[in-house]
Design a protein around this nucleic acid. Structure first.
Length: 764
DNA sequence: CAGTGAGCGAGCTTCCGCTTGACTT
C-alpha cells in the first residue's frame, strides 16, 4: 500500500487535514521555517554571490530527525505549506533538508480547509516554484544584511545591544515623527455658533442648527450674537438624500488587532495569543492572514444564519478584495470555523474576541444600512450667514443590527452630532430663534499611535507581515526606542457666549482634554537612533524602501530578475554607506542649552549621558556643577528650563523626625524618602517637589510597621530569617532567598527545618 | 535597589518571517 506523508506548517492545521484525508495519509507539520541563517554570524558572503549558509536551529533538530525518518518511510511526500513566498521556501527547504528525491515530491496548496478543497489539491500537484523560492531568499538575505550590518554600527557609535532593521526602524521613525508633529503643534481656537430654532406656524419642537462658518475671536462672536438680536430667520432649502452604509470586510490580522484594541482594550500581543488559543481549539480559522476572503462554505452558512435569524432581506453575500499593499492572501480571512456557533466556552478574553469575530463575519454578509439624511438651511435675515441643521434617520438597519466598526479618531466631545430626526419643514417657513450660543473650540494635535494604529500604518506602507506585527511592537518596546504610556487629562478654560432674551451673556468654563491611555511615546534613545539613521541610512528608513524592494522580489518571482543580481545592485551602494558611516559618522547626544538659572546664574543644559538623559547645572569645568536625571515622560527635545530647574530642587531636606534628618529625593526607581539610612518609596500620587514632612513621616511609620510584620521568624546567629514577601513567605539567608515547601506553616519552622531547605536548594 | 556621569577593555549584542511551547520571579 502507498504511504503518503503530508507536511503543513501548523500542527492545528495538520489535525484538521488529517481528518479530511483519512487513513492513507499521515499529516504532520514543520512548525514554520525549518532552516535559517545562523544567529551568530552573517551567514552570507557578499563577495561570493550572496549564497546563504543555512543551518538548522538547535530546537528544530529533533523535529528534522523525525521528519526525515517519516519521509524515508513514505512513498510520496506532499509539501503543503502555504502558497506564498515564505510557504514556497518552506517547501523547498523541506525537500532539501529531508533529502526528498524529485520523484517522491509533490507540491500542493490548500486554498481553504474543506474536504473538497483538500481533495482537489491532491488531484493537482505541481513542482516547487524555484523563482518564488529565490524571491524569498532575496528577502531573507536583504533583511539579514540590513539588520546585521547596521546594528553593529549602532553598538559602536551609540550603545550596545541596539538594533536596526528594514521594518523596526521605520516603525520607530513613525512614532518619532508623530511626536515631533505634536511638539510643533500650536492649538488655535475659534467659535462655533449653534442655535435652537422652532417653527411656530408648524408648532415644532426646538431643533439645533449650526452656523456654516467659525468666528475667529470672542469679539467677532459677540458682534455676531448682537447682530442676531431681532433678526428674522427662514428656511431657504430642505434637502433630502438617501445614504448607504456598508459593512466592514471580515477580519485580517491587522484589522482584528485594531478592533480588539479599540473595543476590548487588548494589546496586539494579547489579541494574537487569545486568537491562537481559539485557533488551536478549532473555533476560528488561521489568525495570521492578510486576506478578507471567505470560503464558499462560510458564505453559505452565514447566509443561512442571517436568513433564519433576521430574514432574507438582511442578507447580502459579498466577497471583499484585498485592501492592503503587498497582501499575499495565502489564507482566508479570520472567521469562526463554524458560523452557527454564536458563543464559545473559554475565559472572558476568548469569549469576547470570538464574539467580535463572529459578529464582524456575519455583518460582512449582511445588507447595507439605509439612512435618510435631511439638511435644512436657514437664512439669517438678509445676511450671507446660513445655519444648517442636519438629521439622520436609519430607515433600514441592515448589518448595523449586528456590528458597527469603531474608529481611531477620538471625536471632539462637544462637536455637533447629527440629530436623529428633524421636524418636517419647507422652504419659506419662518423660524424663531431660541438660545444662540458661540462656544470656543480648539484644534486638536495629531494623535499619538497606539500599538494597533501603528500596525495599521505599517500595513498601509506595506511594511511587516501579519506574523510579525506583534513581535515588531515588542522589539521596539524592548529596545526602549518607544514606551507605552498614559498622560493625564489637562484642563483649559474656554469661553461661551450665549444670546438669550436679547442679551449676550459671557461665561468662562473649564474643560478637560488630551487624556491619553496606552499610547506610544518615543524615548530619547529612540529619537537619537532615528535621527542618526535618517542622516546616514536614509534609504533604509525611507517609507518606500520596502515597497521598492517588494517590486524587485516580484520580478524575481516571475523570473524577470535574478535574485543575487538584485542583491548586488542593493549592496554596492549600501556597503559604501556602511563604510562611510563607520568612518565619519557621529551621532548626536541630544544636547540642548536651555538657559541660565536665575538663582545661581549658571547655565543649564541637557544631554544623553551614560545612564540616560540628564540635566547639568554649571559649566563642565565648574567644580560645583550638578547633575540630575530627567524624569519619566520628559524628553531632551522638549524639556523646558523651568522643568529642568525643578529637577535640581532635589534632594530636599525636609527637617527632623525623632532627631534624624528626613530627605526626599529621586532615584533610579522613582521618588523616595530617606531616613536613618532607610529608603521608602513615595506613593503614586505624591509629588517629591511638594510633599510635606508630615506625609513623609506617615510613609516612614507605615514602612516601619510593615518591616515588623515582614519578619516572621529570626535566627540571627546563623543569618537566617523567615520573611513575608510579595509572593508569600520565604527564607532569607546570606543574601539569597529560598522557597518554603507547599503546605508548610512558616511560623512553625524550626532552625533545623530552615537549614534543610537551604541545603537542599544549594545542592541543586 | 537608592544620587553614578571617566575608564583597563573580555565577550556579547543584531535582522524578518514562518510556527509553537516551556518557563516562574
Amino acid at each position: 500500500m502507498e504511504k503518503n506523508l503530508v507536511i503543513v506548517e501548523s500542527p492545528a492545521k495538520a489535525r484538521t487535514i488529517a481528518k479530511a484525508l483519512g487513513e492513507n495519509f499521515t499529516v504532520t507539520s514543520s512548525f514554520g521555517h525549518i532552516r535559517d541563517l545562523s544567529k551568530k554570524k552573517l551567514g552570507i558572503d557578499p563577495d561570493k554571490g550572496f549564497t546563504p549558509e543555512y543551518v538548522i536551529p538547535p530546537d528544530k533538530k529533533d523535529l528534522i530527525k523525525n521528519l526525515t525518518k517519516a519521509a524515508e518511510e513514505a512513498s510520496l511526500i506532499w509539501l503543503a505549506s502555504d502558497e506564498d513566498r515564505e510557504g514556497e521556501a518552506i517547501a523547498w527547504h523541506l525537500k532539501e533538508t529531508l533529502n526528498i528525491p524529485d520523484e517522491k515530491t509533490r507540491r500542493i496548496a490548500f486554498h481553504e480547509i474543506t474536504k473538497d478543497a483538500i481533495l482537489e489539491a491532491i488531484e493537482n500537484p505541481r513542482d516547487i516554484d524555484m523563482n518564488l523560492v529565490m524571491a524569498q531568499q532575496a528577502r531573507r538575505v536583504l533583511d539579514r544584511l540590513v539588520g546585521y550590518k547596521v546594528s553593529p554600527i549602532l553598538w559602536k557609535k551609540v550603545k550596545p545591544r541596539l538594533s536596526a532593521g528594514r521594518v523596526q526602524s521605520v516603525a520607530v521613525r513613525l512614532v518619532v515623527e508623530r511626536e515631533r508633529e505634536i511638539m510643533k503643534f500650536q492649538s488655535t481656537s475659534s467659535f462655533r455658533v449653534e442655535g435652537l430654532f422652532t417653527c411656530p406656524e408648524r408648532n415644532t419642537d426646538p431643533f439645533k442648527a449650526e452656523l456654516n462658518r467659525r468666528l475667529n475671536t470672542d469679539k467677532e462672536a459677540e458682534d455676531f450674537l448682537n447682530g442676531c438680536i431681532g433678526a428674522e430667520y427662514s428656511v431657504t432649502n430642505v434637502e433630502k438624500k438617501q445614504g448607504r452604509k456598508c459593512p466592514a470586510p471580515p477580519f485580517t490580522t491587522s484589522t482584528l488587532q485594531q478592533e480588539a484594541s479599540r473595543k476590548l482594550g487588548f494589546s496586539v500581543g494579547q489579541t494574537m495569543s487569545v486568537a491562537q488559543r481559539l485557533y488551536e481549539s478549532g473555533r476560528i480559522t488561521y489568525m495570521r492572514t492578510d486576506s478578507t476572503q471567505l470560503s464558499k462554505t462560510a458564505l453559505a452558512s452565514a447566509k443561512k444564519i442571517i436568513t433564519n435569524t433576521y430574514g432574507a432581506e438582511y442578507g447580502k453575500t459579498r466577497q471583499y478584495t484585498a485592501r492592503s499593499k503587498g497582501a499575499q492572501e495565502a489564507h482566508e480571512a479570520i472567521r469562526p470555523t463554524f458560523m452557527d456557533l454564536a458563543k464559545v466556552e473559554g475565559n472572558v478574553a476568548e469569549k469576547k474576541l470570538y464574539d467580535l469575530i463572529w459578529k464582524r463575519t456575519l455583518a460582512s454578509q449582511m445588507a447595507d444600512a439605509l439612512v435618510d439624511k435631511t439638511q435644512i438651511s436657514i437664512n439669517k435675515g438678509k445676511s450671507a450667514d446660513i445655519f444648517t441643521a442636519t438629521g439622520e434617520v436609519i430607515v433600514f438597519d441592515g448589518f448595523l443590527k449586528v456590528y458597527r466598526e469603531s474608529s481611531d479618531d477620538e471625536p471632539e466631545k462637544t462637536s455637533a452630532k447629527p440629530a436623529e430626526i428633524l421636524p418636517p419643514l419647507e422652504s419659506g417657513d419662518k423660524l424663531e430663534a431660541g438660545q444662540i450660543k458661540a462656544v470656543q473650540r480648539f484644534t486638536q494635535s495629531p494623535f499619538r499611535y497606539t500599538e494597533a494604529s501603528l500596525v495599521k500604518k505599517m500595513e498601509e506602507l506595506g511594511i511587516g507581515r501579519p506574523s510579525t506585527y506583534a513581535p515588531i511592537i515588542s522589539t521596539i518596546l524592548q529596545r526602549q526606542y518607544v514606551i507605552k504610556g498614559d498622560r493625564p487629562a489637562k484642563t483649559r478654560k474656554y469661553l461661551e457666549l450665549v444670546l438669550q432674551d436679547n442679551q449676550v451673556i459671557r461665561r468662562e468654563n473649564t474643560e478637560k482634554y488630551g487624556e491619553e491611555r496606552g499610547k506610544l511615546f518615543p524615548e530619547d534613545i529612540g529619537i537619537l537612533v532615528n535621527d542618526y539613521l535618517m542622516e546616514y541610512f536614509s534609504s533604509i528608513v525611507d517609507y518606500n524602501f520596502t515597497a521598492k524592494v517588494e517590486e524587485d522580489f516580484d520580478r524575481i518571482a516571475s523570473g524577470r530578475l535574478v535574485w543575487n543580481k538584485m542583491l548586488e545592485e542593493f549592496y554596492r551602494p549600501f556597503s559604501k554607506t556602511l563604510d562611510q558611516a563607520l568612518e565619519t559618522s557621529r551621532p548626536g547626544n541630544g544636547e540642548r542649552y536651555l538657559g541660565i538659572d536665575p538663582v545661581s546664574g549658571k547655565p543649564v543644559s541637557v544631554r544623553l549621558g551614560r545612564f540616560g538623559a540628564m540635566a547639568q547645572l554649571g559649566e563642565s569645568d565648574d567644580p560645583e556643577k550638578r547633575y540630575a536625571g530627567l524624569g519619566k515622560g520628559q524628553l531632551l527635545e522638549s524639556i523646558t528650563l523651568e522643568e529642568a530647574l525643578q529637577l535640581f530642587k532635589l534632594p530636599r531636606e525636609m527637617g527632623l523626625y525623632q532627631d534624624s534628618p528626613v530627605l526626599v529625593s529621586k532615584g533610579r526607581f522613582g521618588p523616595y524618602v530617606k531616613w536613618q539610612g532607610k529608603y521608602v518609596s513615595l506613593g503614586k500620587s505624591d509629588d517629591p517637589y511638594s510633599v510635606t514632612l508630615e506625609r513623609c513621616v506617615a510613609l516612614i511609620e507605615q514602612a516601619r510597621e510593615q518591616e515588623t510584620k515582614k519578619h516572621i521568624l529570626e535566627f540571627p546567629e546563623e543569618d537566617i530569617r523567615v520573611l513575608k514577601g510579595r509572593y508569600g513567605p520565604y527564607i532569607s539567608h546570606a543574601k539569597k532567598n529560598y522557597r518554603i515547601p507547599k503546605g508548610t506553616d512558616p511560623e512553625s519552622l524550626t532552625l533545623e527545618d530552615c537549614r534543610k531547605i537551604i541545603q537542599k536548594k544549594d545542592n541543586d
